[in-house]
Nucleic acid binder design. Structure first.
Lengths: 336, 336
DNA sequence: GTGCAGAGTGCAAACGATTGCAACCGATCG
DNA sequence: CGATCGGTTGCAATCGTTTGCACTCTGCAC
């Protein structure tokens, strides 16, 4: 079934004209007679001509492809960012070359180096790159946008974690919680750092005691954190993301801990599954697809030859569900 | 920060040799002296030369890119297929150009036509194309592999739904269920058709009454199906996929229906969240990443000039969790 | 009838890399 | 000492497309 490619020259021969004429006819140049255009178009259609985009991009010198890296394709947060980015880029005539780093900084750097050879621009989504790796990436001869990682001399789109953390903590203090535990994410994650930083700062200003522990990004990290969480003195827990949150809820369920009566759980991201957890998880909704769209807008501005726009900050919205409730009055009696 | 590209000729000039020599040195040809290779490599490194892959692919004439379509990037099933595919393709020196059709056959066709111009091969993941659309795609001048949709004259990798449906139904009949309701997926989905077909056939052989209703692919579709499911006479439900299953469980929880005492729920796919639903969802585990890998293997065989290998069929494995249990003895008393 | 404008067309040179072929080198052999 | 040979290197063609420029041709004005 694999047919031979039809080239411009084949169309020209068949139409009895030159390649330049065919090219112009197909690309809609104005200095060419309408009849010829019609004829060439007809012949091209008949022969099933499709321009060799590789030759085209090569000749034109400007790649119509955007390279994107994400830490983990299976994380709904990233999928949705990609969704928004893909749609916008496509509307702008660009395509997406997607690479997954597997949460590994070294692998991400390799990926970046490879993608850049094929792309006219890069989008690093929640980059796990080290400081020096990031500098290397920014020194590449293409524009780079970072999603969820602010950086100089590049495009930047991020979630406003300062506002996010404030929303979460104010909600919890409003319910009477004075001691909160944060179950962290991957150490290489910039956004985990931001969550911690802003939580600490806000906790101080709200007179809340903030404990922290290390965690991860997936359901099992939350499940495994169960015992430690239960033995802590906190009455409320904030998890790095919903996957971790749902995993934690699941452990609590298996161990007969009543959420939210005994412990409140809240999280970042509000992925669809958060609403279907039992109890449904209180979480911070962010417009992830919008994040991708904004990244594209920044890139488009830059590709048009302008300077980088100011970083975009997206303010999340707290979705209160049944996993958070009033703080229990007395210290927990049960032991793990 | 956007530097000027260094070309082969720049390296040649700097190294005091010709472009051919540089090319050969960099590509490891054997008819060139080791000292020159070392020197050229050094100069290239110094200048920060990176080959223009567009020019390279153009010249070599064989695209090193695989175009992939998926109905929905945010569905974990597809993300994991992509993960496996991306890893294998990358190992084989190929990159992935990914497009999302949004579950829309017309959009998928547009996507395919666009991707093919940039790719040397196509992978259609759970294609929603119409019969004629699919024929159009297969007529394109590149090899095509279909994941989860069998087709002639193309590569094919799919899940063995016959075995899958049998595992599910045998599990349920083993628990005493004689009447089962299937909550279906998108009408455009080939795999929904397969699930229905094999369920019907197996139900007949096991003497089980199978009811069917239309559903969808996401959590809300399952949640919305709640009332209809409850009012049916079935003692067990099989849902199109886990997202639908989790949504349904969630409705049951909200409406105080005890799963599995009053109703058993089982599903296809076993995405990670299935284990964290309450009750954890009985589901059919399939090696999704393997699906992607096998698709690549088929493609690699074909790209190497051989015929298409036989279609690969992946047999799933039933993971029994707490959402399925013995059928209740008496008819349901409660009304919706 | 010659000149000239302007529209329409074709020729040929790019883009950056790879690669067949010819040219060159010093050394070895007859 | 010249021919030959193996090992290196450079020249130039090539991939499919776009596009600047030169050219042809028609029609109109003088």
């Amino acid at each position: 079934m694999v047919a031979e490619r039809v080239r411009l020259i084949d169309v020209a021969r068949e139409a009895g004209t030159s390649v330049s004429t065919v090219s112009r006819a197909l690309n809609g140049s104005d200095l060419i007679s309408p009849e010829v255009v019609a004829h060439v178009r007809a012949v091209a259609g008949e022969l099933g001509y499709r321009a060799d985009k590789r030759a085209q991009e090569f000749k034109l010198g400007r790649p119509l492809t955007v390279g994107v890296t994400v830490p983990d394709l299976t994380n709904p947060f990233f999928s949705e960012v990609l969704k928004g980015l893909a749609a916008s880029a496509r509307a702008g005539g660009y395509r997406l070359l997607i690479g997954e780093s597997g949460e590994d900084p070294a692998e991400e750097l390799r990926l970046v180096e490879e993608l850049v050879d094929h792309s006219g621009a890069l989008v690093l989504c929640s980059s796990r790159l080290t400081r020096s790796g990031l500098e290397k990436a920014l020194a590449l001869p293409v524009p780079v946008v970072c999603i969820n990682r602010t950086v100089k001399n590049a495009g930047a789109v991020a979630i406003d974690y300062r506002a996010a953390s404030r929303l979460l903590l104010e909600h919890l203090t409003g319910l009477g919680h004075r001691r909160v535990l944060y179950v962290g994410g991957p150490a290489t994650s910039w956004s985990d750092g931001e969550r911690r930083r802003t939580l600490r700062r806000t906790a101080r200003s709200l007179d809340v005691t903030l404990d922290e522990m290390d965690g991860g990004w997936a359901g099992n990290h939350g499940y495994d954190a169960g015992p430690t969480v239960l033995s802590s003195r906190a009455t409320a827990v904030i998890t790095f993301n919903d996957l971790v949150g749902v995993g934690l809820l699941s452990w609590m369920h298996d161990n007969d801990v009543d959420v939210p009566a005994e412990l409140s759980v809240a999280s970042y991201d509000d992925i669809p599954i958060a609403a279907y957890a039992r109890p449904p998880l209180t979480s911070l909704r962010n417009e992830r697809a919008r994040l991708g769209e904004l990244a594209w807008e920044q890139l488009a501005t830059r590709l048009a030859g302008n300077d980088w726009p100011r970083p975009d900050l997206l303010t999340p919205e707290l979705v209160v569900r049944a996993s958070t409730g009033p703080a229990r009055r007395r210290a927990r009696i049960r032991t793990s």
